[in-house]
Design a protein around this nucleic acid. Structure first.
Lengths: 214, 214
DNA sequence: TAGATTGTTAATCGATTAACAATC
DNA sequence: TAGATTGTTAATCGATTAACAATC
């Protein structure tokens, strides 16, 4: 096929697709089969045209007057974001956040599958956390290479994050999902996604101030 | 003062400011006193002009040839994002993610201060998690009103998130930081910040696919 | 059919980048 | 001084919104 299925959607679109997904899931549970772009737009708080543009990336068609089929949209989003083919992942740092991540258990439905976790704490090494085995940090590089792991998740304290990232890079990882509140230095070809809570919190606190100044 | 200190910066700028902050913290530890916009730009991976534009919002000046003072920049970011005046917060849902949040303990430095947590589990009610007392969910609304709490954090399972949000709204909360993977319906005047991990993960997995298609 | 909604092109808006004079 | 870097205006780029014909 020359017309690639995964025509690149801009990042804002990808973020919204994930929001549509959660909304559509609720609608499905409510027994709704079809929905218009206007309704989606009102719920999410964006322009209806934008919703249609976003949906266009997935090559899903709607019907004039009735709108889009909820099930079809859900499946298309899942497949467009490649959530149907989970990628293997390692996690470093089995503190409370790391444990919470391993315990979430539903990342499999969102494109990621934890194979193993790593820590420096002897008490944790050799145990399993929510069914994921914990190994000593030294084994990370070799295991990552051997198992061709693609995603590295960092939930260590800030001071340990850079060396964890270095181990991942050495192990041939392709993308890093970083939760440590620190700036990581990485080779250019490594995909970095910062899931820093402080960033999200900064947006929230800023909006709080703005509202008060009005 | 007519020229307001908090001139609204666009959201992308706010997110970058938080990234600069982490970078500058590292630089400070390395003993670096001054830094140019070019150096910051290279580390973060953006254009130098953009860095200067971002810094301009905080009314901090640099010096030609030497650049910006690291300490001054750090202080300005902290004060611009209002991290120096933590706002009180309640948290609902003391599962593993909620516990991790309460245990992080450093949100005080990023503008938020947990006063109390809430849950429906009798085994948790009456205890403290990392020094934060856990109350029964029914008390949330009244306590929020009485203590004039501004931020509500939701770390419940998806099915409990909407009712938790409703309690927060009834309690007069101004902003909600939502971690549940669900679409919340809220009155227009409530600030909503979604810190949904699935959204961040969607961006990561999409980038992974794009790289492979190249 | 009439009317609501899609699909798409054109216009607008806002953020980013380029250019360059001012300045330490 | 010469040169690097700031501060700012103008140009560009890309995402969002407006407009509207096509269609069920």
């Amino acid at each position: 096929m020359t017309d690639n299925k995964f025509k690149p959607a801009p990042e804002p679109t990808v973020r919204r697709l994930s929001r549509y997904y959660h909304l559509l899931t609720s609608l499905k549970e409510e027994g709704i089969n079809d929905i218009s772009s206007t309704t989606i737009a009102n719920e999410i708080g964006v322009d209806p045209t934008l919703v249609r543009k976003d949906i266009e990336y997935m090559k899903v068609g709607g019907k004039p007057k009735t709108g889009f089929n909820v099930n079809l949209l859900l499946d298309s989003i899942r497949s467009y974001l490649n959530w149907v083919n989970p990628k293997d992942a390692f996690l470093v740092g089995c503190g409370s956040l790391g444990t919470a991540m391993l315990g979430y258990g539903r990342f499999k439905n969102y494109g990621m599958n934890f194979l193993a976790a790593f820590d420096v704490d002897d008490l944790k090494i050799g145990t399993t956390i929510h069914d994921t085995p914990v190994f000593e940090l030294q084994k990370l590089t070799e295991l990552a290479k051997r198992m061709e792991v693609q995603i590295g998740v960092i939930t260590t304290p800030a001071h340990a994050a850079q060396s964890a990232a270095d181990l991942f890079v050495e192990g041939g990882i392709k993308a890093i999902w970083n939760f440590a509140p620190i700036h990581l230095r990485l080779p250019e070809n490594i995909i970095l996604e910062n899931a820093q809570l402080t960033q999200s919190l900064a947006v929230l606190t800023r909006n709080l101030i703005h509202q008060q100044l009005k």
